[in-house]
Structure formats: C-alpha cells, structure tokens
Design a protein around this nucleic acid. Structure first.
Lengths: 338, 338
DNA sequence: TTGTACGCGTTATCAG
DNA sequence: CTGATAACGCGTACAA
C-alpha cells in the first residue's frame, strides 16, 4: 500500500489536515511545521492520490480529447498529431492532463464521451473536428458541459467556444491567387462534405469566382474523402471526363493533394506546367513533394494551443461569455502553381 | 450535483449497496430487484462516478501513454498516430481508457510519469519509443510498475515486456535485397542513434554486408535526426564529399527518406536510375512519393495493439513471466530501387 | 437475497 | 496556527 497523508501525519506528529494544508502551501501553516512535514514527505516518498483528490474536489484537472473515429482515414492525418502537440503544450502549462477518447465507431466514441462527462473524469472536452449534426456536440450542449471545438460549429455558433481559421477568407485568397496567375478554369477538390472546414473552403472558392465574374461550374467541384482513391478518382473525373478540363486545382487538404500529385504524375500531366495545384494545412511534408506544394499554413499548433486556453477559461468562469479565437493563416507559395 | 448511487437507492427503495451490486451485475441479486434498480438508474440517468470507483478499487482501468517530447520532430511522425490507433483499438476492446503524457522537455515528461504512477492515475504505462539509458524506464522498473515498451529495451530485456519488430532481420533482408540487385556501395542513413530501432537497423545492415563479404565503410554510415536537414546533410556528405559515392541508400525512416528524395531531386540525381533508395515503416505516404518508395512494412498498428494486450496481461497477472511480441515485417517493393 | 457499517485518501469546515 | 470531524461516491466484508 502506498504512503498516504496519514502516514506522513503520523510520523510528522501532526494531524492529516495539517499535511493537507502543507501540500496546498496554505499560508496558515507555520514555516517550521511546513519544513518538518515536507521533510517527512520526501523521506517517505509521499505523492497525493489523484483519485481521492478528484473525488473530493469534484474536478480532475484533466481535459478529454475527442478524435475522429480511428477507423477513418482522417485519423492518420498529421494534422491531429500537430493539434495535439499544441493542446499538450498549453495543457501542460496550465497543469492539466489529457484524456483520450477511444472507439472505432461513432457510437462507441459517443458512449466514451458520456462516460467521461457523467463519470466526472474530465473537466472539459475538446472536439478535434467539427461536422454537421454532430451528436456529441449536441449532447455536450444539452448537458451544459464545458467544451471547445476546433473548427466552426454548424449551428449555435454564438454560444459555443470554438477555435478556427477563417477558412472562407483563406480559400478566397487562394482562389484569387490562382485567378491572378491567369487561371479561369479552376476546380475544387474537397474532403468529407459533412465537415465544416470543407464547406467553408468551398464557399471561399465560390465567392472568389463570383467576385471575378467567373461562373461556378458544378463539374469543377468534386468531393472525396480519401487521399489515394480520392486523388485518383478526382483526377479522373476532372481531367479525363471533361472536355474543358481545369487548369488549376484547389485541394482542401495536403494529404489529398499528395494523392492528386501522384495520380497526375502517373498520367504524365506535369505540375505546374500543365496544371497548377494548391492545398491547405501546410503539413511538414508539403516541402518534400515534387514539386514542393503551395499550401495555406493554418497554424495547426496554435489551434490546439488556443483551444485549451479557451476551454480552461470557460471551465473556470462558466458564466462569462464564451471565448473564441480565429487563428491566422498564411499562403505559402512554393512551386506547384504558375 | 449529479445523481449518485444513493439517489437511485432511495427511489428504488433499496440499500445503496444493493445498487452497487446491480451495477456489478452480481448474481446475488434477484432478477426482480435488478430490473427495478436498472429502471430507476435509467430514469434518473445515473452514471457511476469514476473517481470514487477508482479510489475504492485501487485501479483505474486506464493506461498511460508516453510519447517522445513534443518538441522533438519525431513527434510529428505519422508512426505515432498509427501506434495510438492500434493502442486505442485494443484498449477499447478491453475497456481501458487512455491517458496521455504531456510535457516538452525530458524532465517534464519524467515528472508527468511519476504523477501518473504515484498518483495512481493509471494501471500501466506504454512507452512509445525505446532508447538507451531512459530514465523513465529505469524508474518504472525500480517501482516495479507494470509497463510495456514499443521497441527493444537497451538492457534487462528479459525482464521487460516489450513489443517490437525484428529490426535486425528486417534490415538484413533489405540490405540483401540491394546486394542482390547488384549494389555494393550501400550507405546507411540512420535517425537518432540513441534509439534502439536505429542501432538494430544499423546492425542488420552491417551483418548483411559482412555476410556478403562487403567491407563496412564508416563513410557510408550517417546519422541525422531530422527529415529535412537530415536529408540534405546526409545527401551532401554521401554524394558530394566522397569520391566513391554509394549507389544505394538505406534510410531508417520513411519521413527521412522523403527528405532525401527531395534533396536528390534538387541535385538532379535520379531515383532509381542514379541511386536506389529504400526505407522503413511503410507509412501511407510512401506510395505517393516520386518514385513510390520501397519500404519495410512493420505493421505499426499491430505494434500498438499487442502492446496493450501484453501490458494488460501483466497488469492482471503481475507474477507471470512477462509477455513479449515480435510483430512481422514485410518488404514492400515499389519503384525506388533497381 | 438484502442491509449495515466501514474504508478508500483527500479536502474543507469548524472549533480551539 | 493546528486538530477533530465530516464529507466526496462507491465497493465489500459481515451480519441478518
């Protein structure tokens, strides 16, 4: 059995409550007593039992992280490693721990969240994605449980704490960049259309076209979730089936863009000579592709970092208005557009 | 205040202990009582308080995951997402939750582990990497705390529960593959030499050379940690500075291989015509590189999956001999070698 | 088959 | 400044 507060108390010849106060560094305790107690603590190798502490405090100093279903290909996107890095960094600063959701299906993850919340295992939750009609988000709202979303909620956006890029604007700029390069036949390859990030990027693209008087063609808009298959299929649809194939591609995600690049190469279509391509997220890998991929840096790390800050703020001051944060983006020009 | 076991008891007109037994589905309780209690539980929306349960049970049904320091570039390697996917899958099967270490420096992570262990926050720990003289591992051994390592421990290997590939053999095969293709000037680009995986892969390479009577040249062995800089520097050292440059490269990690590929391209050195290249891990991305990268599939998912199995086995039967698992590997030939 | 009583390790309130 | 005591929510011997 591990050493408890009582053991320390006994040896230090004080009451357990005194030891507890020493741990909390209460100013009520005399310097002398503190010193004695701390010595005994070190000597015995005392460490507080976190479960007991959580139980009595009614809070856990830990945050639940909800990832997409691990069966989804999206899970493997380095995006998540990077948000978690940001989350981890800020959480550590604020002395919070991280709890990971597990589960392969929607349903399993949903149940896991309920366990976390009702079981009082975490003080707040961060959703690493935002999609339409998400039951988890609805549940958290109904429970009035503190949470933060990375991405833009599909509804109730004004009462939800979320951290996002201005994806509409980013996509608008990207599209304009291509237009300025002289392109008019610009296609959009999106990911899962249920994700808000996809719709936002699509909308920015549409706005930009409209603003420049270029008609929006349904044939130029393709959705596909998976990097490889998506890449192949999208390219086939856009370049083989159309008699007016696009001269530039906007791809909603770097990973998918890799798939597209690879398919284009197989088809002996040169980038950027024959077709330009630009994507989003600016993963570390974009500089290694051939040609190096132009991409929008969305500061993934900061998304995670600020999510924790916002969440903790709303955990500590549940009444205050919800915090929000828009993380800056930046178009990184490499060699995939001309 | 949330609904507790007492609330349920009161309404169901039974004793709290009876409710507790119903939760545990004790065979002592009559079917009738169970039904009544369960109805009340549903009606009130009862969920057990996990902290209270952890406290009394002296176990938490959760596993601590220790990643490399988040400042290290290695953190971003998709390898980790994939192990965690495997861990998550098995953990969920076995009703275990996951707890993530945070911390940027060595020291912070070490402290975090101590908190987890002494605070009784987790029942066991999985180390996602293995390197020489790891203080965390030494601590866990000293504490006799259940843990599993992904990779091979540098010492006490026979008393530690670990999950690994046969990296020596894998590297041996890879090297032979290149030798069979007719290469004799084969270089090795390794990662962090403190990692066991690096040494194992290096050793397999050396064995194979020796077995074929090819002398081992120090000039052909380069270590570099980072994908990009590593790629550039390694290529410079090997191809520009030597008067007998290698005709084939074995790279210890796909990510680094990307860096190498990119640098080679800048230098207008063709792969595989001018130089062959092969690497390890078979990340999803390897098929997108140009040329698609030959790589060793090490079944990352399974590494994580089995790690949980081994760990839980040793949590539940601390006396039994430690479990081990060697995950199979497979050489995936693509187009980067000739 | 169910109820009683106690303990798990802390913190917080109230005396002193 | 410190001690005694009552929670926190649950599980489990022991009793009935």
């Amino acid at each position: 059995m591990a050493v408890t507060i009582k053991d320390v108390a006994k040896i230090a010849k004080v009451n357990p409550s005194t030891v507890s106060r020493v741990i909390a560094d209460s100013p009520l305790i005399s310097v002398k007593t503190k010193k004695v107690v701390r010595e005994v603590m070190n000597q015995l190798g005392y460490h507080p039992n976190i479960n007991a502490r959580n139980l009595v405090n009614q809070r856990t100093q830990s945050i639940g992280i909800v990832m997409p279903s691990s069966t989804e290909k999206a899970f493997q996107n380095p995006f998540f490693a990077e948000v978690i890095r940001g989350i981890s960094s800020s959480a550590h600063n604020k002395k919070y721990s991280l709890f990971l959701s597990t589960g392969e299906t929607e349903e399993e993850i949903y149940d896991g969240v309920i366990q976390m919340v009702q079981g009082k295992r975490v003080d707040g939750i961060i959703l690493l994605y935002s999609r339409i009609n998400d039951q988890i988000m609805e549940y958290l709202i109904k429970q009035n449980f503190p949470f933060a979303v990375i991405g833009k909620p599909d509804k109730n956006a004004d009462s939800i704490c979320y951290i996002d890029n201005d994806n509409i604007q980013a996509s608008f700029e990207v599209t304009n960049y291509l237009i300025e390069l002289g392109h008019e036949r610009i296609a959009f390859i999106g990911g899962n259309p249920d994700l808000m990030v996809t719709t936002d990027r699509l909308n920015g693209y549409k706005h930009a076209l409209t603003a420049s008087g270029i008609p929006i063609s349904k044939e130029y808009i393709v959705h596909d979730e998976y990097a490889k298959e998506g890449g192949q299929e999208a390219v086939n649809v856009l370049l083989s089936a159309l008699n007016q194939p696009p001269t530039a591609l906007i791809v909603a995600d770097d990973l998918m863009a890799f798939g597209v690049l690879s398919t284009l190469h197989e088809k002996k279509i040169r980038v950027p000579e024959d077709i330009s391509i630009i994507s989003f997220n600016n993963l570390m890998l974009t500089e290694f592709s051939r040609p190096p991929l132009s991409s929008v840096d969305i500061n993934i790390f900061q998304l995670g970092f600020e999510a924790v800050n916002c969440l903790i703020a709303s955990v500590q001051h549940p009444k205050k208005e919800v915090k929000r944060f828009i993380v800056k983006h930046q178009l990184i020009k490499r060699d995939s557009c001309q």
